[in-house]
Simulated assay, not measured.
Amino acid sequence: MRSMIGNRRSSTAAAVVGAAALVTVLSGCAGGSTNSPAPSSTTPASSTKTAPATTSASGSTFTDAQVQQLCSDMEGQLQNWRTVTPTLGKGGLNTIVITWATQNGINLLDLAQNRESIDAATSAACPDVRGGAISALEIPDLASGLVGF
């Protein structure tokens, strides 16, 4: 029982941190600045090809590698989302999407206007992970779980 309470407290703390990050990122973007991280000077040694782009139904474009990273990040949290309340889990989903977008230089304002692009991309790349997230978070689609989007 005590470990269950500890898990909920840490999950609650994670959700609060995620919500704070969302507010910080969105308020920082509200000023109109679209700063992207500087291009990396290193390239992966395992591949010399450019990853093909995957275009979602809403027009947002992500590479296959980017979508696979998002799927992997979400898959890593599925068990946690099944054990916490859907409200806390949605905070975790937002944290994952914001972190993923930031790491990949994806404009958060564009993503906010096209949140359906997350559904389209994950439907094509990892329908099982997407379905598991939707079930655990008790939402009709991933776009519905994105707060502030």
Score class of each variant (00 low, 15 high):
118 I>M: 08
45 A>T: 06
43 T>E: 07
97 V>R: 02
75 E>Y: 07
12 T>L: 10
104 N>S: 13
127 P>H: 12
60 S>R: 11
133 A>W: 01
30 A>F: 14
15 A>G: 05
44 P>T: 10
127 P>Y: 13
123 S>P: 02
18 G>T: 03
137 L>V: 07
86 P>Q: 01
81 W>R: 02
39 P>A: 14
61 T>K: 10
51 A>K: 04
132 G>N: 12
35 N>T: 13
22 L>C: 04
16 V>M: 08
97 V>K: 03
62 F>G: 01
75 E>F: 07
102 T>H: 09
97 V>I: 15
124 A>C: 04
30 A>M: 14
96 I>V: 15
142 L>W: 01
127 P>D: 13
67 V>L: 05
48 T>Q: 08
96 I>G: 00
134 I>E: 04
145 G>R: 03
30 A>H: 13
119 D>R: 01
39 P>F: 08
122 T>H: 02
91 G>M: 08
124 A>Y: 06
21 A>S: 10
141 D>N: 15
120 A>N: 03
79 Q>V: 14
95 T>M: 01
136 A>M: 07
85 T>S: 15
104 N>G: 11
118 I>A: 05
134 I>G: 02
49 K>F: 09
140 P>Y: 08
104 N>A: 10
122 T>Q: 01
14 A>Q: 00
30 A>C: 14
113 Q>V: 12
122 T>G: 00
15 A>T: 03
137 L>I: 09
14 A>M: 01
107 N>D: 15
29 C>W: 08
149 F>H: 01
134 I>W: 05
137 L>T: 02
146 L>M: 14
46 S>K: 05
128 D>R: 12
128 D>G: 10
116 E>P: 01
114 N>T: 10
31 G>H: 08
133 A>M: 11
23 V>L: 14
119 D>L: 04
108 L>Y: 02
96 I>S: 00
64 D>Q: 05
9 R>V: 12
6 G>V: 10
84 V>F: 07
144 S>W: 07
39 P>D: 12
33 S>V: 15
118 I>R: 00
111 L>E: 04
32 G>S: 12
70 L>C: 09
14 A>I: 00
54 T>M: 14
74 M>I: 13
52 P>Y: 10
75 E>K: 06
32 G>V: 12
101 A>G: 09
45 A>I: 07
10 S>W: 07
149 F>Y: 08
33 S>Y: 12
58 S>W: 08
55 T>Y: 11
77 Q>V: 03
78 L>R: 05
100 W>D: 00
74 M>N: 00
93 L>P: 02
50 T>W: 05
11 S>V: 04
107 N>R: 02
16 V>N: 04
113 Q>A: 15
15 A>I: 01
19 A>W: 13
148 G>R: 08
35 N>R: 11
55 T>H: 10
9 R>P: 03
92 G>F: 02
